[in-house]
């Protein structure tokens, strides 16, 4: 029973990692670049959620606040692409890495200035509630997180597989020039992807804040772990991101419980390194070879 309890908490954590990893994968799929500020966007989403929902702030109903946070961060993502990232369109991917690292620093500074450096948490209608199945106790928060993740992943999956926009995104990720010649507005597609990544980060952030405390530096470390998750899954794969997130989420509490202290924290990274060494492209890797 104890193991099962640990497993469920791990899955719920894993779902948030997975959602954040989805954000990485979205941007990677569209521009084959990694957004190192994704973790900080989650942190921003969490703070926005708190601002919209908590009493003493905007005091909106939970769902309403969630939507507001998602909209704000979506617009933020769009503007970010439009006014900052477009400046390096056509530059090597490395430039994008550096640029997003710098953006992360700026977002952190902004959050620290606005919300301060003390941990805050989100008030939700289901805080403290639990579901009971026999002897098993599932916190309502965990159930909501798991449900929301499944829903969002399904929606995104169908979006990429079925809709015109989704297919256009896939095409522009594989060859910008060719996609452009085929009449796909590559730049606009990129901006929409960033908006989408903002929305996903906001949802993940609000769920994160519902489960624990938020402070400006939380994005960096959490982001790196979600990164590990995305990489374990293979950066180009949406289901892979979720699987990777779940793996990281589950490994963490178990390693913390059964390994000597100090080894628990490093478990996700060791897992990632092991996956990368055995399968350099991740579990759901796409074959890569340069054509000459």
């Amino acid at each position: 029973m104890d193991v099962l309890q640990l497993l469920i908490s791990g899955i719920a954590n894993g779902c948030i990692y997975g959602l954040l990893a989805l954000g990485f994968v979205l941007i990677y799929k569209a521009s084959e670049a990694v957004n190192f500020a994704q973790g900080d966007m989650l942190m921003l989403g969490a703070f926005l959620g708190i601002t919209f929902i908590n009493t003493g702030y905007a005091d909106l109903p939970f769902l309403m606040g969630l939507v507001c946070a998602a909209v704000v961060l979506g617009v933020f993502g769009y503007l970010l692409e439009r006014f900052v990232l477009r400046g390096i369109f056509g530059q090597p991917q490395f430039a994008m890495v550096i640029l997003t690292i710098a953006l992360g620093f700026l977002i952190r500074f902004f959050a620290g200035t606005v919300w301060g450096h003390n941990p805050m948490s989100l008030e939700t209608p289901f805080t403290g509630q639990v579901l009971r199945f026999g002897g098993l106790i599932i916190p309502m928060v965990d159930a909501v997180i798991i449900g929301a993740t499944v829903l969002l992943t399904t929606v995104l999956y169908f979006f990429f597989a079925r809709t015109r926009l989704g297919v256009a995104m896939q095409a522009s990720s594989q060859n910008q020039m060719a996609a452009y010649y085929m009449g796909i507005p590559v730049k606009r597609v990129n901006a929409i992807v960033w908006a989408l990544a903002g929305v996903v980060a906001a949802i993940a952030g609000v769920l994160f804040a519902a489960k624990g405390a938020v402070e400006p530096s939380v994005g960096l470390l959490f982001g790196i772990k979600a990164f590990a998750a995305a990489v374990i899954g293979g950066l180009g794969s949406l289901p892979g991101a979720l699987v990777g997130g779940l793996l990281v989420g589950i490994v963490e509490p178990f390693a913390g419980r059964y390994l000597p202290s100090g080894f628990g924290q490093v478990a996700p990274y060791v897992l990632m390194l092991a996956v990368l060494i055995l399968r350099p492209g991740g579990l759901f890797a796409q074959v890569s070879q340069k054509k000459v």
Binding site: S31, E32, F89, G90, Q91, P92, Q93, S173, Q174, N175, Q176, M177, G236, Q286, V287, S288, Q289, K290, K291
Partner: peptide, 10 residues
Amino acid sequence: RTYLKTERMR
């Protein structure tokens, strides 16, 4: 400028 071309192959 170097426009992105994937090195992924399916």
